[in-house]
C-alpha cells in the first residue's frame, strides 16, 4: 500500500534489478510503431543497417530525400521493446526534417521524446540514431557518386 507520508513508498523509480517498466508513450510506440516497412530501391535515397553486438538487436532504415528534407522514412527492427519503441520514435522525429536537423538528432532526444525509458534500455536508443546516420551517409555517398545533382 502506498503511503503518502513516505515519498519512497510505492515507487520503483531507480530500483536496481531486472524490473522493467515502460510508460504509455513507449508502449504505444511498441504496439503501434510508426513508419514500419521498407522503401524499394527505386524509392530509397539512403539505406542504413546497424546491429547492437551487445544484445543482438538489429535495425534497417530507409530514407527518401526531397529538396534536402527527409520526405519518407521507413524501418524494420529486430529487438526488445526498447529497440522497437526507440526505432519508431526516431523515425517520427526525423520525418520532414532537413538532413542537417536529422543528423543532429541524438539518442537523448529520442529518449526525451518517449518521456523516458528504463535505464537498461537506454542503449537501445542509439540503434535508431546510428541507423539514421548510416542512411544519411549512404545518401551523401550516392549524391557524390551521381553525375547529376538532385
Amino acid at each position: 500500500m502506498a503511503n503518502e507520508s513516505d515519498p519512497d513508498a510505492g515507487s520503483l523509480e531507480g530500483m536496481p534489478g531486472p524490473v522493467l517498466f515502460y510508460n504509455d508513450v513507449v508502449l504505444d510506440h511498441f504496439l503501434n510503431p510508426r513508419n514500419v516497412g521498407e522503401l524499394s530501391a527505386m524509392e530509397a535515397d539512403g539505406y542504413g543497417l546497424v546491429g547492437d553486438p551487445l544484445c543482438g538487436d538489429q535495425m534497417k532504415l530507409w530514407i527518401a530525400v526531397r529538396e534536402g528534407r527527409i520526405a519518407r522514412i521507413a524501418f524494420k527492427s529486430f529487438g526488445c521493446p526498447g529497440a522497437i519503441a526507440t526505432s519508431s520514435m526516431l523515425t517520427a522525429l526525423a520525418e520532414g526534417k532537413t538532413i542537417t536537423e536529422a543528423r543532429n538528432i541524438t539518442d537523448d532526444d529520442v529518449v526525451a521524446a518517449l518521456g523516458g525509458i528504463p535505464e537498461k534500455k537506454k542503449h537501445c536508443s542509439l540503434l535508431g540514431v546510428r541507423a539514421l546516420q548510416a542512411a544519411i551517409d549512404d545518401w551523401e555517398r550516392r549524391r557524390h557518386a551521381s553525375a547529376e545533382p538532385r
Partner: peptide, 25 residues
C-alpha cells in the same frame, strides 16, 4: 525477440517469461 513477445503477452494479460526470471533485463 523474446522480451518483446513477453511484453506483448503481458499487455494481453498473460504472464510468461524469457528464459529464467533471474536473467530478465
Amino acid at each position: 525477440d523474446g522480451e518483446s513477445i513477453v511484453l506483448g503477452l503481458d499487455l494481453a494479460g498473460i504472464c510468461v517469461s524469457t528464459g529464467s526470471a533471474c536473467s530478465t533485463g
